[in-house]
Design a protein around this nucleic acid. Sequence first.
DNA 1: TGTCTATGTTGACGCCTATCGATACAGGTG
DNA 2: CACCTGTATCGATAGGCGTCAACATAGACA
Lengths: 110, 110
Amino acid sequence: MLEPVAAPCCPPLTERPLSADEAERTAKMFKALGDPVRLRLFSAVASHEGGEACVCDISDVGVSQPTVSHHLKKLREAGLLTSERRGTWVYYRVEPSVLAAMGQLLSAAA
Amino acid sequence: MLEPVAAPCCPPLTERPLSADEAERTAKMFKALGDPVRLRLFSAVASHEGGEACVCDISDVGVSQPTVSHHLKKLREAGLLTSERRGTWVYYRVEPSVLAAMGQLLSAAA
DNA sequence: TGTCTATGTTGACGCCTATCGATACAGGTG
DNA sequence: CACCTGTATCGATAGGCGTCAACATAGACA
């Protein structure tokens, strides 16, 4: 249903102009982080001990529970987070390769 | 009218959960790059020789001229680009500090 | 002054999205 | 089995956003 956005995607933004296809795929990742609530959720997961967090650990961002679930789904669809149910709770963790790819896009910035 | 989004904003996303204020400001930058057309325009400017580009050099992205102008304005408002008119043409260049700040947000990704 | 070119702005349209309440599902406990 | 808790989905609504055509503005040049 939702394939990862291709982790090793593109060269740094400063190297050459992105093609339409590259831009389409890459923009999805940036777009996913372009919402304050999602950014807080993502940061909460990424900074949580063990690299993963239960929804119950991070859902205190000032919006309703369905909205939190909606945003976590968006982050999953963008390939930034993965989820796994273990018993009662669902745990989210960051997708390291995708995050590294995004960092590389901005890395050669100078 | 449009103040820069505070270049040295926040620690890496993996260090600690972002506050609501931090997320609000940071999300604007990611959001600005969350559109394929804007991403192509930004990449075209960033990769252009001399670090700057005339609109006429980069406006071939498959949308109308007003739309290009609209997206360039969004990138300006997000603090990612600056513009300057020199004679007939308007030149855009990347704001290095802001780009570096974004890179830092994703840098410690591991 | 007038005219041409290069950009920016305006107004409108349609789509996308963030948000919520209500509801459904999954898993644990009794 | 029934019940409770944690999480996801559904349906609806309001606002934001990408896009365009039309118009406005700025500079160059005659």
